[in-house]
């Protein structure tokens, strides 16, 4: 990012109580407080949220799309992590 504009903040909005915050986009702002105010005006003009998080975009580390296959592969050959892997005789209840 060039230094000709304010830092970029990624915006996360919680839509209703009890559900996770979800990424909705980003805003430029000089500090966190103003980033939250800008995010409110840009992303929640129609009551889309009850809570906003902003995170400096440069602080986010992400897995790399090129490594997606290998990176997530270890869980692919472990079907025994799912309940459907196990055969339970008919008639056995609450299992």
């Amino acid at each position: 990012m060039s230094d000709s504009q304010w830092p970029l903040w990624e915006v996360f909005v919680q839509g209703n109580p009890g559900i996770p915050h979800k990424h909705v986009g980003s805003v430029h702002a000089p500090d966190a407080e103003m980033a939250i105010q800008n995010a409110r005006d840009v992303y929640t003009r129609r009551s889309e949220g009850i809570s906003i998080w902003v995170v400096p975009a440069v602080e986010i580390s992400a897995s790399s799309p090129e490594d997606q296959g290998a990176f997530f592969e270890p869980s692919n050959d472990k079907p025994y992590r799912h309940p459907t892997f196990y055969k339970i005789p008919e008639g056995v209840k609450y299992l």
């Binding site: 304010w6 702002a29 000089p30 500090d31 407080e33 103003m34």
Partner: peptide
Amino acid sequence: AATAYAAKQA
């Protein structure tokens, strides 16, 4: 002004 305010707060 916003930039100056943010700098002052920091």
